[in-house]
Simulated scan of single mutants.
Amino acid sequence: MMVLEIIIYQSLVATCAALVGHFTSGEWKGIKREMQEFELGKLSYVMTLVEIAIASQIFTIGAIGLIFEVFSLFSNVVSVLGMPIVPILAVIFSHDKMNGIKIMAMVLVMWGFVSYIYQYYLDNLKSESEKTNVCEISKLSRLEEDG
Rank of each mutant, 00 (worst) to 15 (best):
L81G: 08
T132W: 15
P84M: 01
Q10L: 15
S138Q: 14
G30K: 15
F113E: 00
E128R: 14
G30Q: 14
P84D: 05
F74Q: 03
E5T: 08
A105W: 03
V134W: 15
E39C: 06
A17W: 04
V109S: 11
T24K: 09
Y118P: 01
E27Y: 15
I31D: 04
V13C: 07
C135A: 15
Y120W: 09
I52D: 09
V91I: 10
L143E: 15
E34L: 13
F68Q: 09
S94V: 10
G100K: 10
L40M: 05
Q119S: 10
G21M: 02
A90F: 08
I101E: 08
G26D: 07
I88P: 00
N76D: 06
K131D: 10
S127G: 01
I88E: 06
Y118V: 10
E130S: 15
Q10W: 11
G41L: 02
K97P: 04
Y116Q: 14
A105F: 02
V77D: 01
T48L: 15
K29A: 12
L125K: 11
W111S: 11
V46F: 05
G147C: 08
R142M: 12
K131F: 13
Y116W: 12
A53V: 14
Q10N: 08
A90Q: 07
G30R: 14
M47Q: 05
G112N: 07
L89R: 01
V91A: 08
F68T: 06
G147E: 13
K32I: 13
K97S: 11
V80K: 02
Y116R: 06
Q36V: 03
Y118N: 08
S141V: 14
Y120D: 05
E136R: 14
A17E: 04
G62E: 03
G147A: 11
E27V: 06
V20M: 14
A53D: 07
S141Y: 09
Q36D: 11
E39L: 08
S94M: 13
E27R: 12
S115V: 07
V50P: 00
E27A: 11
V107H: 04
G147V: 04
V20C: 05
L66M: 07
V107T: 11
I58V: 11
H95K: 14
S56R: 00
L43I: 14
Y45H: 14
V78D: 00
F71L: 08
F74H: 07
L108S: 11
C16N: 02
L122M: 15
I58P: 04
S72G: 08
L125F: 01
L19T: 15
L81H: 05
V50Y: 04
V114T: 11
L143D: 13
K32S: 12
E69K: 09
G62C: 06
I103E: 02
V77Y: 03
G82P: 00
L143V: 12
V78G: 00
V46Q: 01
C16V: 13
I103R: 12
E145M: 12
Y9V: 04
G30I: 06
R142G: 12
M106V: 01
M104L: 10
A18Y: 06
F93E: 05
S72V: 10
I88W: 02
Q57K: 10
L73D: 03
V114E: 03
H22A: 14
S56D: 10
S94E: 07
M1R: 06
V3R: 10
K97H: 15
T60I: 13
V109P: 00
I6V: 10
Q119G: 03
N76I: 11
M1Q: 02
D123V: 07
L19S: 05
